[in-house]
Nucleic acid binder design. Structure first.
Length: 278
DNA sequence: AGGTTGACCTGTCAGC
DNA sequence: TGCTGACAGGTCAACC
């Protein structure tokens, strides 16, 4: 799925097209994705305004105002494993797996999600969005200053398991999925098998920097388009072309030339170089 | 309590 | 050609 960079690239692509615009209609074509979709979405949204699009972890938060009675609401969107957002013209016929449309006059925001692991939830802003049960369990944002080597070292103390699944634990730090966990560990020279609590303070500094560098580079490259992911204009990201280890099993390591190894950890594929990562 | 596994769902590809 | 199984960017609930 989209990890943090893909979600952020989506947000940056949608913002100039849609922010501030009035919603002219909305359609849902399936009763549920991961959770049931908001009912009567068209009725609720028509005439309201999309004020802003924010991101928290891998969630996009669509701030809606000018609702009847001058209320505000937030649409919480998660792209799951295979979701993507596109802007299309109103006469573009929906294809299979195009589950939601939100229309803005001459532009339509369309959600496609073949595997339907995504989510779209309505949050009326009678309570802060930070208190929402899906949001209030989320850990620190990796690109914020709070996330650094000292913070990471403090949090890894209690984790005896291998570092790679820990790095992907959104209750600790958000936004790092399978691709960027592998790439960050390669960049920092740390084995994905190493016990999290046995990583020194100095190497935690290196790892925190590697995470920030990897995610930032991926945003700059427009994200990774490994299978389904595309931008709001239908174009592909190109970070996957810079991947050092992800999906490169058996190919020569870019550091030492020895073959990249693929193993399984916590049910997910892990790619790494046993020679460069200790 | 932390770690692992299965479940959710569809599409694709390798192997027979 | 057609079937079967494995696997795919996430995350939650259920188990040890």
């Amino acid at each position: 799925m989209p990890e943090l960079p893909e979600v952020e690239v989506s947000r940056l692509g949608l913002l100039p097209e849609l922010a501030g615009r009035i919603i002219t209609g909305a359609v849902t074509r399936t009763p549920k994705l991961r959770y049931p979709l908001p009912r009567n979405l068209g009725k609720r949204l028509t005439g309201a305004r999309l004020a802003n699009i924010r991101r928290r972890a891998k969630y996009l938060l669509f701030d809606i105002d000018h609702l009847s009675g001058d209320r505000t609401a937030t649409l919480i969107l998660h792209l799951g494993m295979s979701g993507s957002l596109r802007i299309v013209t109103p006469d573009t016929p929906p294809q299979i797996h195009d589950h939601v449309d939100i229309a803005f006059g001459d532009k339509v925001l369309r959600l496609r999600d073949p595997r339907r692991f995504g989510a779209l939830l309505w949050h009326d802003n009678t309570t802060p969005i930070e208190d929402h049960p899906l949001i209030n369990v989320l850990g620190v944002e990796p690109l914020e200053d709070l996330f650094d080597g000292a913070w990471l070292h403090g949090h890894l103390r209690k984790r005896s398991g291998p570092i790679k699944p820990v790095l992907m634990d959104s209750h600790m730090v958000v936004g790092i999925g399978n691709i960027y966990a592998a790439e960050s560990l390669f960049l920092s020279g740390i084995s994905p098998l190493r016990s999290a609590q046995k990583i020194s303070a100095a190497r935690c500094d290196t790892l925190a920097d590697a995470v920030k560098q990897t995610l930032s580079a991926a945003v700059a490259a427009g994200g990774s388009s490994v299978r389904d992911y595309v931008h709001s204009d239908g174009g592909a990201g190109c970070f996957q072309l810079q991947c050092a280890v992800y999906e490169r099993a058996g190919e020569p390591c870019l550091g030492c030339g020895k073959p990249v190894r693929k193993i399984r950890q916590a049910g997910r594929s892990t790619f790494y170089c046993p020679n460069c990562q200790k």
